[in-house]
Write a protein that binds this DNA or RNA. Structure first.
Lengths: 333, 333
DNA sequence: CATCGAGTTGCGCCTCATGCAATAAAGATT
DNA sequence: AATCTTTATTGCATGAGGCGCAACTCGATG
């Protein structure tokens, strides 16, 4: 619907297009046409034209085009601040139209660390989506810490470290670690009886961007954790690889139960040093989900968070490996 | 830009169309597809489809269709309240993008009483639009009192009576009345010397929906106005007709100077009873403009109001008829 | 009961949004 | 410094979708 007859004009309110505004919000948040194109499953050329059309309608540029990135102009920044809130309000108003028991629907964008996502979120999400057929999920797994706003994510899982941020954090579940080794390893090397004896063992360590992890141990009557220098013949930034090596009898691992609970319950790994509490990040013993105030108000995000709380209370399935030792793994449902 | 792949869903945020939202706002405010179609210069079928598409995107009806009118559903009303504010904020944010000295632009919708509009607003608007080429004006003249919000008007002129309302009212100019007659009438019947002697004269009276107007007179030392029963042989709801009859020498009229200032200055009408102050609505002696808080923030409305204040200060041209007696009419510029 | 006005729908036409491919520009890499 | 790679732009062809006209429906009005 174009405005006609056209008069000479600096801007044309009727030339505004809601899709162009949404595209602009995503470009501004991500700093990239390419990222916005991926977000909306569109060609970059389409994004380019939407932005160009918006700038023409407004009568001035919103973005500086650099190679490999774009940046907001002063006016673009001011407009982005407004548009972001306007779109939020519009979507809330639109969603509020639904009757109170309306089905959550739309695209749920989830970010999580790779291993946690594969093992825990996929089955949880599977059950959630069977309940709510209107939900489409986009599961982005990455071991890099991302900025959910910039990446346009609805929910981000954080295992362990929880950086200070303006995001809304919800504690989801405790994160317990277990030292474990395969029976085949123990048959040859025997089981360590104290944390000190770990120095006689082959400890397979995670070595990521933050360097090589240390193992800490604490007895219940201790107020703090004691670090132990351990070493081994395999260090990797890929937890999955370390786990595979451990299952082959190569050495000991200290991993969270959401990663190795199944192996423990199936006897593929044997828990060790159970009188102590082991961890790799002292004091960080919880799994959180991060979202934004805005997204917390959407039906789909609230429904998924509620479902997660309900599924993981009072104790997540991955912490119930003791009860399942010897039996078939009880799939999540 | 459609959302794909589509999942089963109650609503689709990406299916929202800004034009459809604007159409919906106008339909809701006016209660009519036809009125909204006129507002946007579109066929009614186009409006019908926009609304239908919006309802499908939202998954529920927004309007009850009755013959000859539509009404908002409960959900439609709630949505309308939200959408109205969202659109207002979006338009303000968009207009705020302009540099401080940006030209006002867009469509200015003005409502005024017929005679006042023809005589006073057309030339005022003409000069304003020569200054601001980006302005398109829609001048709706009506002697019925309209609801500016419902009619989607930016500025409404009110001469005389100012009903209580939530609209923003700005006093624009004083409204002075003059009793006058053509020289040809006075040659035959002589001039009345007091208001009491009007009963001996043929007084042409406005007779509208509120009934036949009375004439009130007041001397400067009086605190109130005194009504006078006058009568004549022509009553009409059309001021222009009464004026034409007076110019033909048929009788006396009591009219505001914005209506007869030119005739007075050209000697076609002669002012009478000048020691008195005459009026037809006691106490209502001002011309106001009405707008809404929202529209007051728009550049085009502010610019027009500022221009009106500047043009009519310290005294509007229509009150300067004495200075122009005997000379050519000085057109507004 | 005929007429009128408001809204709906079928149909054809035209505009515009889209993706592909070629291109430009500049930062990253060797 | 040359080359490669990535991001964004633009020409072009195609198809989707918005539009107005006309016929129709329905209920209020006189």
């Amino acid at each position: 619907m174009t405005n006609r007859p056209k008069t000479r004009q600096a801007m044309n309110l009727n030339a505004l297009d809601l899709n162009a505004l949404r595209v602009f919000e995503r470009v501004a948040a991500s700093g990239s046409f390419t990222a916005a194109a991926r977000h909306f499953h569109r060609a970059v050329s389409s994004v380019s034209r939407q932005i160009r059309g918006l700038e023409e309608a407004l009568g001035q540029p919103l973005l500086y085009r650099h190679t490999r990135a774009v940046a907001l102009t002063e006016a673009g920044w001011r407009y982005y601040e407004e548009i972001r809130e306007i779109l939020e309000r519009l979507d809330l108003a639109t969603e509020a139209l639904a009757y109170p028991d309306a089905e959550p629907s739309g695209v749920l964008r989830i970010n999580a660390p790779v291993a946690f996502g594969q093992r825990q979120i996929v089955p949880l999400l599977h059950t959630f989506q069977r309940r709510h057929g209107g939900i489409t999920a986009e599961l982005q797994l990455s071991d890099q810490v991302i900025d959910p706003v910039r990446e346009g994510q609805d929910i981000t899982f954080r295992v362990g470290d929880l950086a200070d941020s303006s995001l809304v954090a919800r504690r989801l579940a405790p994160m317990n670690y277990v030292v474990a080794a395969a029976p085949s390893y123990l048959e040859v090397h025997g089981a360590p009886r104290t944390p000190e004896s770990l120095s006689d063992h082959n400890c397979l360590l995670y070595q990521g961007e933050m360097g090589r992890q240390r193992w800490y141990f604490q007895t219940p009557d201790q107020s703090g954790s004691t670090p132990h220098e351990v070493s081994g013949n395999l260090y990797s930034n890929d937890a999955e690889s370390l786990l595979r090596a451990a299952l082959l009898g190569q050495g000991l691992v200290l991993f969270p139960t959401w990663l190795i609970g199944d192996a423990l319950s199936q006897g593929e790994l044997v828990p060790l040093l159970e009188a102590w509490r082991g961890e790799v990040m002292p004091g960080r013993r919880d799994i959180h989900v991060l979202t934004t105030e805005r997204r917390l108000r959407t039906r789909k995000v609230r429904a998924f968070l509620d479902y997660l709380q309900e599924s993981l209370a009072p104790q997540p399935a991955w912490d119930q490996w003791r009860e399942r030792i010897g039996g078939l793994s009880n799939d999540h449902r």
